[in-house]
Design a protein around this nucleic acid. Structure first.
Lengths: 251, 251
DNA sequence: CGTCAGTTTGAGCGAGCTCAACGTGAGTGG
DNA sequence: CCACTCACGTTGAGCTCGCTCAAACTGACG
């Protein structure tokens, strides 16, 4: 019974609703148990609380169990660049791996439950669980793919294409969580969206209005209802449809 | 004698001039030998030859031994986005890890010598050589850091800041190879530079002309001589004269 | 009811894009 | 040797999309 309670709260990986999106993917019973032992699950993080700060020593990577997290870097000029929005089942914190120091800060966009995974223990464990090593390296690879897609977006796409891409991205990620692909809440502000997409918040707001006017969306503050998913997808890639578009997580 | 010849040609990692920048960093004698056994060194790749194509199955990562390589992705609209320029000692090809399929194409910018490292053999080997696992994961982490810095560049910086950042970047990478920090040759075209920086080739050309006129550079086609390195660095991290350069904001 | 952060909408501006012409140097063939 | 081509680079002129500045609106919260 108490075991059942723990399950409902998702207090270990085996019972976590979103483990299929997370690190444990492709691990078996005992291996998940070993991973479970090194995962630390702390108190809930409230909105606007930091999980780590840019410049701090890198010790752990993190997984979102519930809620939403924003990561951002600040460059030498003081420009803030949002590097990603992280939803349940997604890993963040790997910005610290290369230099042993976080280049990003991570802040909760809403009350969130976060799993902390000490990095040294993870790499040690992955020496004895090859599929864990593969899964972790693969997750890093996906992060690289997503960052590179963002590069193309920032370098080549119009404001409307950028916003449409973000919406489709959230639609797909929501669907991967067995939630609605067309009705969801964007957990971040217009300003965060603009920063992430390389636009001003005014431009983001105008594009939302335009999309609503043209019948693609209903927008009510952060609540989004996509009325014409196909039309929106057309906007993200105005040429011929392409296979292999399925990405699941950003930044 | 013949052994000496192999060394001069850099035909194994232990003797490679640029191993300190590459995967073998922090490996010891026997470990380098084990890595050496899985590294494949083929014939020279000529200018405009492909090392791999976007969409092809992912099997290996690659290291530049000499020459220069450009990687680029093509998005669903057919936009080409240059994702990196790779110099001796640098790894490329990790764009294929996440999806087991290359998202980029890799093409030689000049005649190049390339080491191919079969990925499965590398991950197998890194299960028994923890420092190799750490090194490889760290290299992937650095790729993420660099891509994220590019995001900020594309999202926030002016044309002059972008070009200055590229020049300083090549200056630093040249210096890491014990070459001149101020006199070097850019291996790519103006069009490639523009694509990489999110600018048109005309804008890149104009910025080079402006930098030359203001005494920061000498430019002769692809040959660059930096006359005022400090001035150029200022341009990468400050656009206005009133910016406070002495305040560290990293938190 | 006032405040304040987030958002929407409008008006005008400007950095960089587009289009176009011209310059340059390497390769080729008479 | 010159004439021609072709890819690449430079320079100029005008245009446009998204930015800047500004004002008004909304809802949450004291």
């Amino acid at each position: 019974m108490s075991n059942n309670c723990l399950s409902l709260l998702g207090l270990n990986c085996s019972d976590c609703r979103i483990s299929a999106l997370c690190l444990p993917l492709s691990l078996h019973g005992d291996e998940i148990g070993q991973l479970d032992e090194i995962v630390q699950r702390g108190r809930p993080i409230h909105k606007d609380e930091y999980i780590y700060h840019a410049g701090s020593d890198f010790a752990s990577i993190y997984a979102v169990r519930s809620g939403a997290v924003k990561t951002y870097a600040i460059d030498s000029e003081g420009h803030e660049q949002v590097t990603g929005f992280h939803l349940p089942g997604e890993i963040f914190g790997i910005d610290g791996i290369g230099r042993n120091r976080h280049s990003n800060s991570a802040i909760a966009l809403e009350t969130s439950a976060i799993c902390e995974i000490p990095f040294n223990r993870l790499t040690d464990l992955s020496l004895t669980i090859p599929s864990l090593q593969r899964r972790f390296i693969s997750l890093m690879g996906l992060e690289i793919n997503e960052d590179q897609e963002l590069l193309t977006l920032l370098s080549k796409k119009s404001a409307e294409e950028r916003v449409a891409t973000l919406l489709i991205n959230f639609s797909i990620r929501n669907q991967a969580r067995k939630l609605s692909a067309t009705v969801f809440r964007l957990p971040m502000s217009r300003s965060d969206i603009g920063n992430y997409l390389g636009l001003t918040l005014e431009t983001v707001s105008r594009v939302f209005s335009r999309f609503q006017k043209s019948g693609l969306l209903n927008v009510d503050k952060k609540e989004i209802e996509i009325l014409d998913l196909a039309g929106l997808k057309t906007l993200t890639s105005s040429c011929a449809p392409d296979a292999d578009l399925n990405t699941e997580k950003a930044g």
